[in-house]
Simulated scan of single mutants.
Amino acid sequence: MRNRFGTAAAIALMTTVSAVLLSACGPDNSDPVAAPTSGTTAAPGGSGGSGGSGGTGGGGTGKATPPGPTGQVVNGTSAANHLTISTGGTTVAMNGTTVDFGTAVRDLQWSPDGKRAVFVNGDGDLVTSNPDGGGKTVVAKHPAGETWSHPTWQRSGRDNLADTSPNATERFKNIVFASEKGGAVKLETIPAKSVGGTPEVLAPHNSEGGNENMPQPPQAGNGWPNAGGQRGEIAYANGPANEVFVYDTYIRPNTHSMGKGSQPAISPDGEQVVFVRSVDGHDHLFRRSTLDAKSEKDLTPKAATDYTEPVWSPDGKTLAVRTPDGIATLPSDGSAAPVQVSTVKGLPSFRP
């Protein structure tokens, strides 16, 4: 859209809001944020720079584009709706503006408290940072020949979990991601506080695998992990089987299938999973209860485009999805059709 402000007005506006920009990308989503100009977009970019060779500190520029007239929200992001969009370039759209992380940012997701981001940087390493791109920590460096993707922050939302399960607080502070080498995909995990650490293979299984009614889930081809729920559950997709699974290790390891699909996302309460399945030439969104296998529902029965890469809002009421034209949102119960909220083409996420 055309900018309706002249040069002088724009300079004055940039001067008055320079302090606001710092809070716009700070660790608290409730910080006051001025909305960006109508022309602001999160521009794709190259690698931008390295996230560091290991350890902590440095790197992030924390630069944000100037905000514009009060009340405008562009890119579909604002401090109120918690939506963020990473494009694979150096900038991330969030809080009604764009933030320069100083390195390529791929597959960005947020910690359960929203104070740290996790992503794969321009070097292909697993990195966490502050919301402004500063304070980077290289959690792990990828081995030669491996490609890492889709990191997710395993969590536990129960305040009394440590009382009922020894060491549970630390046990559920992990980052889970997909690793691909030579066409073979697997899940790996590493403590979130690691610095230059070494990930371990995550092998979902059933503790009752000896029971003929509880077969072991496939170990090869597992990818696209998404952690959520109150007990550290992890939803993931098995490519060869084109099937979605949920892995729960709270009391004893248990893995169960959610049916055919890909790109799963588990709800904040752990009771629902949304995933993608092709129907009549388009990618639809489906929702299924983790407790009732018969509860499957097509959330986009009239889809005339592809809806992919779904994510849940922190309150569990909204889904954001990627489309060929940008980002759309819809009620998580499927009570309304998706509505495009952004023309930025990237991976959506919600910052708690």
Rank of each mutant, 00 (worst) to 15 (best):
G89M: 13
P112Y: 00
T147I: 12
I85W: 03
D100E: 06
I190L: 11
D107Q: 11
K186I: 07
G102W: 07
S179N: 08
T147R: 12
V120F: 10
G182Q: 08
E180M: 08
A80W: 01
H150P: 00
G76F: 04
T169K: 11
T152D: 00
V185K: 15
V185Q: 14
N213E: 11
T77F: 03
D125L: 07
K136W: 12
D100K: 03
D159M: 01
K181G: 01
T169H: 01
N121Y: 01
G157T: 10
N121I: 02
A104H: 02
R158F: 06
P112M: 01
L83W: 04
A93W: 04
G76M: 07
G96T: 01
K186Q: 11
V99K: 03
S86C: 12
T98P: 02
E200A: 15
E208K: 10
W148Y: 13
P204Q: 11
T103P: 08
S86V: 02
P166K: 08
N213V: 06
G145S: 05
T189H: 05
H150F: 10
G182N: 14
P112D: 00
S149D: 12
F177R: 10
A203N: 10
E188D: 12
T189A: 15
R116M: 04
V120K: 10
S156P: 00
G210Y: 00
T198A: 07
K136V: 14
S149K: 13
T91P: 00
P204N: 05
D125E: 05
A79G: 15
G145K: 07
S111L: 04
E146G: 00
K181W: 00
T164K: 09
N130F: 13
D132I: 06
P199G: 04
P143I: 03
A184D: 13
H150L: 09
P204C: 05
G96F: 02
G122A: 14
R155Q: 14
V120M: 12
V138L: 10
G122T: 13
T169D: 08
V139H: 08
I85A: 06
N130R: 15
A192K: 01
G102E: 03
N174K: 09
G209A: 14
V120C: 11
E200I: 05
A144E: 10
E188S: 13
D107W: 14
H150D: 11
I85M: 07
L202I: 11
G145R: 05
A104Y: 02
A140M: 05
V92C: 04
T84V: 08
G122L: 10
G210N: 05
